[in-house]
């Protein structure tokens, strides 16, 4: 059996879900700080390949920082990030992107002054033909097809996040990191977006989603952790976490 979570010969993470012994992402004693202030105090986390992995926690807990470190945007001050068993702490974000790690950053992960079409065109590094990418994307996200010539910044918040998701999916990532997809969006739209995320995960992409809408994400997650003040304080299945959550974390508004 091929081990999907390890790096393939080309160095890319292979997206098919296979029950692999090696976790797709592992953080070991991860420390990160901004200037003198440390925000991650030795985080350990294992993300198995396949499914949706929810990361919950209050503001300022270090969730976004953790994602930025994994994506190579922020250099950690200690510890290691293992991607398919290989340490990638020194890798640049564009290298990681080429290897199949894709981060949708907080806010709207789109280029507002480029059209929808141009936003998709930016994925040129995979060697896939543009028309193929566009065709596939518009099939999966018909709403975007209607708006292909529109500037991304002029679309609604939900549509922008949809575009961010679409672009991320088009890169055929092995590991998709999503930072607060719900930010500033109505609960109804958030649900629609997470239905899309669930589909993406079913297609074999491992998703790590940082989220404040705990109930929505726990509904589709396969496992979850809770982070407070830079440490993992709870880990387990979604139901397990949900039942104990209210005591720890009051940010849940449900949907």
């Amino acid at each position: 059996m091929t081990d999907s979570a390890t790096m393939s010969v080309t160095g890319r993470l292979v997206p098919e879900p296979v029950l692999a012994p090696t976790p797709i992402l592992e953080l070991r004693d991860l420390h990160a700080s901004y200037g003198a202030i440390e925000v991650l105090h030795g985080m350990d986390m294992i993300v198995p390949a396949g499914g949706i992995f929810a990361v919950l926690g209050p503001n300022g807990a270090g969730k976004s920082t953790m994602l930025r470190v994994v994506a190579g945007l922020h250099a950690p001050s200690g510890g290691s990030v293992l991607l398919g068993g290989r340490d990638v702490v020194r890798a640049r974000p564009d290298e990681l992107a080429r290897r199949g790690v894709c981060l949708i950053p907080e806010g709207r992960g789109v280029f507002p002054n480029l059209t929808v079409e141009e936003n998709l065109r930016l994925i040129g590094h995979l060697g896939a033909s543009m028309s193929e990418i566009e065709q596939r994307t518009y099939e999966q996200f018909p709403r975007l097809a209607e708006r292909r010539k529109q500037l991304a910044g002029t679309m609604s918040g939900g549509e922008q996040q949809m575009l961010a998701l679409a672009r991320a999916v088009a890169t055929k990532p092995g590991l998709l990191l999503i930072d607060e997809l719900s930010m500033g969006l109505a609960p109804k739209i958030v649900e629609t977006l997470y239905e899309l995320v669930a589909q993406i995960a079913q297609d074999g992409v491992t998703v790590v989603a940082v989220e404040q809408f705990a109930r929505t994400i726990l509904g589709i997650a396969s496992s979850a952790v809770v982070v407070t003040t830079g440490r993992i304080v709870m880990a387990g299945g979604p139901h397990e976490v949900e039942s104990e959550l209210s005591g720890l974390y009051l940010g849940d508004t449900g949907a």
Binding site: G72, P93, P105, G109, V110, L114, L122, H125, T171
Partner: peptide, 10 residues
Amino acid sequence: DDRALVLLNG
């Protein structure tokens, strides 16, 4: 538009 996002897109 977004320097970091370009990096994230490879």
